[in-house]
Amino acid sequence: MSSKERQTGMSVIVRTTARLTVGFILLYGIYILSHGHVSPGGGFAGGVIIALSFINLMLAYGKDTALSKLPKAVTSFFENLGALILLSIALLGFTGGYFFLNFIAKGEPFHLFSAGTIPLLNLAISLKVGAGIFAIFVAFVLLKYEPEKNKKE
C-alpha cells in the first residue's frame, strides 16, 4: 500500500494470478455442473466451484470489486431462484403422477441432453449452493469487527 491511490486487496502477484485464473475456475465449475449426469461431479460441487471463483476475486481485489461483479441483491435472487426451480420441477412431476417424476424424455445415454430432469435439477442445486455459500462468505467478511466495538461501548 505504498502507492497513494486507494488499493485494497493483496499483492500484485496474487492479483495477477487471480485475474488470469478466475475465468478458468468459473468455466470448470460450469463444466462440472453441466456434465453432472454423465461423469463424476454434480450440482453441489459445481456450485461451490462457481462460488469459489467469486471468492477468489474478493480475496485478491477486495470486497468492493467482487460485490460490484455480483451484488448482494443478485446473490439472494439466485438463491431464491434455485430453490424455486427445484420445487417447481418437483411439483411439475404431478402432471404425470407423483412428486419428482422424471417427466422429460430420457434421451440417449452419454449425451449432454439426456437423463430427463436431472440436468435441470443439477442447475437448480448449483445456483442455490453457490449463491448460498457466497452469501455466507460475504456475511463473514462484513461481520468481522463487531465484537471489539461492542466491548468498547
Binding site: 454434480g42 420445487l87 419428482f100 436431472i118 442445486i125
Partner: peptide, 28 residues
C-alpha cells in the same frame, strides 16, 4: 430408468430426490 450414466446422479436426483430437496432446505 433414468437415462443418467452417473449412478450417483441418478440416485440423488431421481430415486432419492426428496432427500436432496430437504438438504437444500437445510442449506437455505
Amino acid at each position: 430408468q433414468t437415462g443418467a450414466t452417473n449412478v450417483v446422479a441418478s440416485i440423488i436426483l431421481d430415486y432419492r430426490a426428496f432427500d436432496t430437496l430437504c438438504e437444500a432446505t437445510v442449506l437455505f
